[in-house]
Design a protein around this nucleic acid. Structure first.
Lengths: 334, 334
DNA sequence: GAAAAGTGTGGAACCGGTTTCCGACACGCC
DNA sequence: GGCGTGTCGGAAACCGGTTCCACACTTTTC
């Protein structure tokens, strides 16, 4: 592989001039610039990123930390981030959050502070105080996707509103016996927006004077989780709710599959609403609260680069858009 | 942030000694080593990765190139790679394969040759000759997950065998009218193992003297894809096959959902078999050919690091394990 | 007891870029 | 003609590590 010295020699100039010609910074005559570019092209020269980073202090890389990569939300966000970074000629360093405490500590104490990236996007994780301090110490701007503390630039939908609006939709249709499929954040890792969705559910019931009807059925935020919980909940004819709010579309879809197996028709006998607008929601005609995690990823990149350029810019909390999408899984109760 | 010079000064030794003490290479007295380590700990010193890379020529990073991240197979492989690299203290640089030719070219000509990583794992992509040349020129070992040409170290299941075994399972149960849900590689991007699965299907039929019964129904390798294709195929009572092979579990699951909506009972009226053992296969009691993409990712890392250590080691083609898992979606025809 | 081998350390070169500093030159202006 | 300003290019320092080499001292070997 050729170095900038090779390019300079071939173009008959010094390293300094070659560097200026290629980067476009500083005075270089048009004639010289052309010669250097020709030489670079002839040698298929590509700058060595480590050398560039060392000299400039910039890595042209963004670190992404997420607990999982194999759930819809995370995969979508990652996809958006990836696409946006590529367009900006940035590289993407991916880090998982290891399950065990020791590995997790190693991530924060050793792997992240190596200054391999110019900024970090944290997706759906809640660093504790010590970890935040490590991040801060790394002197790299941080943008978070998903609910986060106020001291961090972040982007997320209003999960509480999502839970509330979903529930209100059912109340407006006339439902009074509405169950919620999901669990609070501590039960299942990496889904701590779920707490707020539950809060929204409770809030909507309270506003309608239905507080005492609140029924939260423990379910993992996955399709099998929703399936199992719904099978349990709906198995007994007596005491069936007339409507279900899924903590996310995966759970809601699992519930829909359970209804088919149990011979319950949706929406005539049971209304189901989800949150997310998962890629499979349309196939199941699932009414849901739409959010666009891919776009949140793109926005996170935009916000992060903004902060990399202007480290002193005030931090902001962006509320990502979400909207009720009515399909055929909800209707007035019989 | 402190540098190794700070550590050296604090420990009262030279940079050279400090470096040796921390890396463990070369002679350092136990006493000195301890002093250097104490100094490093006191200063929370972490080596600057760009400086280390520049000096050693090693980046401690592996590049991963995959077309998508939001499909089960890819997410699983990525997960495995991620986990294995973390355990080895390697970083992971993720690259998507952009859709448009121009971006794709930029990826190969500019982003990959920056020498940001010591090796590359390509998942489910088929670089053309020019692109392979770029990779080769980067002087970095390459390991591929998924079907690949013989000149590359790779790991994949035997897709042809998977297609054959799935079909044979149905034939042994007594089926003679077996449709295949899927499409050849050119129709849908990033699933070129599918061709070989179709070959296996044809092969099994041929061995049983059923060649003329081959019926391949075009379907995207996704749940909605399988659903739509199955709905179309099964909508008309006449001409229904007695069994279906799904090119992957997503498609097979889509088909199962279609059967429920159409009131067809599985497996009494229709047998369905998939390939992959997707995380949802169990919930649908789907008979399938199991493969473990996460382990393939782990193995790919092992193979790549082996090649990084020993660049001249002979390249190999590893056939990942796969096995028939019989659940309740297949049975003898009526 | 001298030569050889082993151990411990520091100085300096090196990896491959970028950037500062400085000198040379051209030009316009007073 | 002298001077300031703008343009162009090179030498050298620098980023933060690693490693080669020289040297001193200690221990082993014959």
């Amino acid at each position: 592989m050729s170095t900038i010295a090779d390019v300079a020699a071939r173009a008959g100039v010094s390293k300094a001039t070659a560097s200026r010609a290629l980067s476009g910074r500083g005075y270089v005559s048009e004639d010289t610039r052309q010669r250097v570019e020709d030489a670079a092209a002839a040698l298929a020269y590509v700058a060595h990123s480590s050398a560039t980073s060392l000299a400039t202090g910039r890595t042209q890389t963004v670190g992404v930390v997420m607990p999982l990569v194999d759930r819809w939300f995370f995969a979508e966000v990652l996809s958006g981030i990836q696409q946006a970074l590529f367009a900006l000629d940035y590289d993407l360093a991916l880090y998982g959050i290891p399950g065990d405490a020791l590995s997790r500590e190693r991530l924060f104490t050793t792997m992240l502070p190596r200054r391999r990236f110019d900024g970090i996007i944290a997706v759906g994780i809640q660093p504790d105080a010590v970890e935040l301090e490590h991040l801060r110490r790394a002197q790299r701007p941080l943008v978070s996707v998903g609910p986060f503390s106020d001291s961090v630039t972040s982007i997320a939908i209003d999960d509480r509103a999502a839970g509330r609006i979903a529930t209100e939709h059912l109340i407006e249709l006339g439902h009074t016996d509405i169950a919620f499929l999901g669990a609070s954040g501590t039960a299942y890792p990496h889904s701590f927006g779920d707490d707020r969705r539950i809060d929204g559910y409770r809030e909507a019931l309270a506003s309608a004077g239905l507080s005492s009807a609140a029924r939260i059925v423990d379910a993992a935020p996955t399709m099998p989780g929703g399936y199992a919980a719904a099978a349990e909940l709906l198995g007994d004819r007596r005491g069936r709710p007339s409507a279900i709010v899924g903590v996310c579309d995966e759970a809601a879809i699992g519930a829909m599959i359970a209804t088919r197996r149990l011979g319950i028709t949706v929406p005539t006998e049971l209304s189901i609403i989800g949150i997310d607008d998962h890629q499979h929601a349309e196939m199941f005609s699932l009414t849901t609260i739409r959010q666009a995690p891919r776009e949140q990823g793109v926005d996170a990149v935009r916000m992060l680069l903004e902060r990399i350029e202007h480290p002193d810019a005030p931090l902001g909390q962006v509320v990502a858009s979400s909207a009720l999408v009515v399909r055929a899984s909800t209707a007035a109760p019989r």
